[in-house]
Design a protein around this nucleic acid. Structure first.
Lengths: 351, 351
DNA sequence: TTGAAAGCGTTACCAA
DNA sequence: TTGGTAACGCTTTCAA
């Protein structure tokens, strides 16, 4: 019984597999099999090994285990743009729940829309041999795209559905969803509409949605009187003051479409606190069906996007891919227009 | 030049250090030194190596590196209770920014207040040799406490300041903060006050705050007419319907203290949409100085807690501890009462 | 400044 | 059902 079990001076004084094996009078391999539940040991052997594990307080070194088995870690890199934006925290929650329930851990990157920071994070995470990656958006910097493509791990792109994804894509068709809202605004008789969003929005993930909306407005024969994009976070107060600015320069607008419900709520509060009636004086439409919509005096017109589900499905697809099950390239989780009461039917067309 | 660089069939087809070294015509060690910035190579050598790294698209296997050097990973386990609660996402954002900027990565656990799930996550994360841990709260399950104590890595407990922390603690004195709000409610003449929160609240991290508030109310001679704790998330609509329920059973209440601003905003919207004047008919006080406070018709009475800063400081303390710098055991990031306009001064005491 | 050899703790592989 | 041996990709160590 050599097996390299002879006692040597070790640098680490942590109990290792060899210690356990020696104490149990078996080889390292046998001990390893017992610990991993792999077949190939007698009940008596098993008992002896486990006894020593308990006695010596052995804890597996997964760094070594993963390394030896050419394996991956149980880490999944998850990149989202912003934690201050409810839609992304909802997606993240969906992802995290599923991963944790399956023994995987989310390694977070909050990109703040900074491509360079994302790239750095990605390089580091990849160097730790993650089990997979979930990234927000489909527009990656060239270097990032290259890295994602050449990585040997499954990658799920979320948010805007990518019909030809790097690997897998889970999301909704943002263009169609934007189009649906644009169409609804035209159908309800609005002629002079406007858009309020933040710079992150138009520059990134919501571009397609915005384009879809514009196309619908144009097709419907209405006019986009102004597009107001501010350099700020897409939160309540931003919607408040952006609406003030918008109405100052374009008081003729009859309906506003906001990047999300929180901005829209800010707009709603500005309008009502300044003597405007919603929707008779001005229509307001949001996006995302966020919690705030439930407590406004009138149900907010919006588009429901199943963010939590999007995250969960993304994680599920990743896990399926890891376990070798066939997984779809793209999954559309769908959206649903919520008519609400902040975008009234107008018959008073501009004669 | 053997150095084990002879081409062999490898299981993995990933480019490794030996490939780079061979291509650059140097030994693995020289390549390793260049990549790690360790002294001991000529500029020319450095250039040749880096050229090949670029050309071959080499990505270091840090699993192997950490393993070989008996080292730790760059992962920091971060545990928070809930992503649907803005206060925690703000803290998380502070943590994440600081960690990422310093080359560390946050490994997320959203505990949902589930001690068992947290324990499992902790065991897994620890087996991956993390650089450190940041956990929310100071009340841990016995097994968790034991694991945290026996782990060889630095641990920061955040949220409620722990005067005798496991290792380090960053937060505010929740009792004092709750007391301050209670005192303010009494000072402004309220006599029949109530509390609205969620079960997570009173059972966990906010217990001390709640206790402090109660003590101040009692000391001030006012009456707590009712404490309404619902089984729901601390969001807008929860505040809305919980207020409805509260007022139905206790219409005599003259001021309500909510677990957070989002609940308070829901309460505000319920009250105003049902003919009540805030603060003359009923006073409303929230917690956290959350974004919603900025767009309500009246500035919400609240307590500002520097959540983002709390997260940043927690990460900073951890990093300092890692680099061997002396770091404080406990850091109080402080709070500030925001008087606002939803809790008016009352002189109409109950005759 | 450079390189060869010896591990690090575990699992894969094959032989008994 | 077992065990020995050879990796895994890197760093440490020591020699040149």
């Amino acid at each position: 019984m050599t097996d390299g079990l002879e006692k040597k001076k070790r640098k680490s004084d942590r109990v290792n597999l060899a210690d356990v094996a020696r104490a149990a009078g078996v080889s390292k391999m046998t001990a390893s099999r017992v610990l991993n539940g792999t077949k190939g040991f007698s009940p008596k052997t098993r008992e002896r090994v486990l006894e020593q594990v308990e006695k010596l307080g052995y804890v597996q070194n997964r760094l070594a285990a993963a390394f030896a088995s050419q394996g991956k870690s149980t880490f999944v890199g998850v990149s989202i743009p912003d934690l201050g934006n409810e839609v992304f925290t909802q997606v993240l929650e969906g992802i995290e729940r599923k991963l944790n329930a399956s023994g995987y851990q989310a390694v977070l990157c909050v990109s703040q829309y900074d491509g360079e920071a994302t790239q750095e994070w990605l390089e580091t995470v990849l160097s730790w041999q993650p089990a997979g990656l979930i990234v927000t958006g489909r527009n990656h910097a060239p270097a990032t795209r290259k890295l994602l493509k050449s990585s040997a791990v499954p990658v799920v792109e979320i948010w805007d559905l990518n019909s030809s994804p790097l690997d897998m894509s889970v999301g909704i068709n943002q263009y169609d969803a934007g189009y649906a809202m644009g169409q609804y605004m035209v159908e309800t008789g609005h002629q002079r509409v406007g858009y309020i969003g933040t710079h992150h929005d138009t520059a990134h993930s919501a571009t397609a949605r915005f384009e879809g909306w514009k196309a619908a407005i144009r097709t419907g024969g209405a006019t986009i009187v102004h597009t107001h994009v501010v350099q700020d976070t897409p939160g309540f107060y931003t919607g408040y003051y952006a609406t003030e600015q918008f109405l100052k320069s374009c008081p003729e607008v009859d309906a506003l479409f906001y990047q999300n419900d929180n901005l829209a709520a800010g707009g709603f509060m500005f309008a009502t606190s300044h003597g405007l009636d919603v929707p008779n004086d001005i229509g307001i439409a949001g996006w995302g069906d966020l919690p705030i919509g439930a407590i406004l005096p009138k149900r907010l017109t919006s588009v429901h996007v199943p963010h939590l589900r999007m995250g969960r499905v993304a994680a599920e697809q990743l896990l399926m891919s890891l376990s070798g099950e066939p997984s779809s390239d793209t999954i559309d989780v769908g959206f649903k227009l919520i008519p609400g009461h902040t975008l009234g039917r107008r018959n008073d067309t501009q004669v």
